[in-house]
């Protein structure tokens, strides 16, 4: 009996580019990282007294917090990409305009990521 390939006939997948699950999961994972980061910053903002440069920069001068902030912001930019792409896909129907907006979003978020690194490593 001849060998039957897995992707023809009834088994053939006819829909989707299959990035949906990956992006959905990435949006959730980055959300959890941001929740932790937000709780730390929100609690320190609400409980902190006399906000000074020493205290604020001292927090970000620590290597582990620098890296944690960077990871959170990179996660944020990926999260933003998934969300903003959904908005363009839902409301912008002309393909040319949609593609332009999507490319602009990606380039802008890459620039923001580089900017974040510059800010963090200037402390």
């Amino acid at each position: 009996m001849a060998h039957t390939p897995k992707n023809i006939g009834q088994r053939r997948l006819v829909v989707g580019a299959h990035y949906g699950m990956r992006d959905w999961l990435a949006q959730r994972v980055t959300a959890i990282v941001m929740v932790i980061f937000t709780v730390i910053l929100l609690v320190s903002f609400l409980t902190g007294q006399n906000f000074t440069y020493e205290g604020w920069a001292g927090l970000f001068a620590r290597q582990w917090f620098k890296l944690f902030t960077m990871v959170t912001f990179f996660g944020l930019f990926y999260h933003v990409w998934v969300g903003i792409r959904d908005i363009w896909m839902d409301y912008v129907k002309p393909v040319g305009i949609r593609l332009t907006l999507q490319i602009a979003t990606v380039l802008w978020l890459l620039a923001c990521a580089a900017w974040t690194v510059q800010i963090l490593w200037s402390v």
Partner: peptide, 21 residues
Amino acid sequence: SGFVLFLALPFLLYLFEQSLR
């Protein structure tokens, strides 16, 4: 809120930069 925060990114990153440099 997600879209507005996306639009506010340059303002927020600018403030973040000023607060730390």
